[in-house]
Amino acid sequence: MQLCIVADFRASGNMLNGMVIALLSQCVVQFPAAFIRSNHTELGDQGIWYSFGSPNLSIA
Results as ranks from 00 to 15, higher is better:
residue 57 L to Q: 07
residue 30 Q to G: 04
residue 55 P to M: 03
residue 54 S to L: 06
residue 52 F to G: 03
residue 39 N to H: 05
residue 1 M to P: 05
residue 9 F to P: 02
residue 17 N to Y: 04
residue 10 R to N: 13
residue 37 R to Y: 15
residue 3 L to Y: 13
residue 37 R to D: 08
residue 29 V to N: 09
residue 23 L to H: 00
residue 38 S to W: 14
residue 37 R to V: 01
residue 33 A to R: 02
residue 5 I to P: 00
residue 9 F to N: 10
residue 8 D to F: 10
residue 60 A to G: 14
residue 1 M to Q: 10
residue 44 G to N: 02
residue 8 D to W: 06
residue 33 A to P: 06
residue 38 S to C: 12
residue 25 S to P: 00
residue 6 V to D: 01
residue 58 S to M: 13
residue 59 I to C: 11
residue 19 M to C: 04
residue 50 Y to Q: 14
residue 23 L to E: 01
residue 26 Q to P: 00
residue 11 A to E: 13
residue 5 I to Y: 06
residue 28 V to M: 07
residue 31 F to L: 14
residue 27 C to F: 12
residue 2 Q to A: 14
residue 11 A to W: 11
residue 16 L to G: 03
residue 42 E to T: 03
residue 6 V to F: 04
residue 50 Y to N: 09
residue 58 S to T: 05
residue 49 W to D: 06
residue 33 A to L: 10
residue 1 M to W: 08
residue 19 M to I: 04
residue 16 L to Y: 04
residue 30 Q to V: 01
residue 55 P to K: 01
residue 28 V to I: 09
residue 32 P to F: 07
residue 14 N to Y: 12
residue 17 N to Q: 05
residue 9 F to R: 08
residue 53 G to I: 01
residue 23 L to P: 00
residue 49 W to S: 10
residue 31 F to T: 00
residue 52 F to R: 05
residue 1 M to S: 14
residue 58 S to Q: 10
residue 53 G to T: 03
residue 4 C to N: 14
residue 49 W to F: 14
residue 13 G to H: 02
residue 59 I to T: 13
residue 19 M to T: 07
residue 55 P to S: 07
residue 38 S to V: 06
residue 34 A to H: 01
residue 54 S to Y: 06
residue 10 R to V: 12
residue 4 C to R: 10
residue 8 D to Q: 08
residue 59 I to D: 08
residue 14 N to S: 07
residue 6 V to Q: 04
